[in-house]
């Protein structure tokens, strides 16, 4: 089918996601997990309405814009807020996007921070460093519904303080965790990372 992306006609297969035809940044979306529509970085305007490109299927005759001033402001601002609240030092993808969108977190002056969370080292294989966590949920999904069906991760809290944790907040070895590390692989910010990287 045919649709228009930023004024240009493009061809797409039925059932394809807008993500596949529209150039947008992503964060929560990952091919191995079912997380989508959470980070809102991939929002586009479809016939004037906002829609996440990662969760919207193409339709004949759609008019899609990915680069309106509003969308650019949204992405830039979101990145600024993330940088303001979260340690992105091991998230090269996000740092690259910040540069591309000219993000200046300082203009917001103040915001509550997630940086104070101490790293958790409770198993021989990987570190959980939630000061770097943007709460994209990819790890929780990889552990549960998306890949493993193990359910050793869940979410605690609400709002800005919501973050991944284990059942009963126990150390991972006391949970159903099987240490497959699929959570580590899908983590986009280095909040979960192999211990082998630490000593090296």
């Amino acid at each position: 089918m045919r649709l228009k992306v930023n004024g240009k006609e493009v061809e797409a297969k039925e059932g394809a996601l807008l993500l596949e035809v529209a150039p947008v940044p992503t964060l929560c979306h990952h091919p191995h997990t079912e997380t989508r529509g959470v980070c809102r970085l991939c929002l586009v305007e479809v016939n004037g309405r906002l829609a996440p490109a990662c969760a919207t299927e193409v339709r004949e005759g759609m008019e899609v814009r990915t680069d309106t001033e509003g969308l650019k402001a949204l992405r830039r601002t979101l990145l600024e807020w993330l940088a303001l609240t979260t340690d992105l030092s091991l998230a090269p993808g996000l740092l690259g996007l910040m540069a591309a969108y000219g993000a200046e977190p300082g203009r917001w002056k103040e915001a509550p921070s997630r940086r104070g969370r101490p790293p958790i080292r409770d198993n021989p294989f990987f570190l959980r460093d939630y000061a770097k966590c943007v709460n994209c949920r990819r790890c929780v999904d990889a552990c549960g519904d998306g890949i493993m069906g193990v359910y050793a991760l869940t979410l605690a809290g609400r709002g800005l303080q919501a973050h991944p944790t284990t059942p009963l907040d126990r150390p991972l070895p006391e949970t159903p965790c099987v240490f497959c590390g699929n959570c580590v692989q899908v983590c986009p910010t280095g909040a979960l990372r192999p211990l082998a990287l630490e000593v090296g």
């Binding site: 191995h32 294989f125 890949i147 099987v178 240490f179 590390g181 699929n182 692989q185 192999p194």
Partner: peptide, 19 residues
Amino acid sequence: VLAPDLPPNHGALCVKGRF
């Protein structure tokens, strides 16, 4: 150790392959 999006595992691993 990362896993590519290819068969048979399509990105998934277990503890032995990962660590």
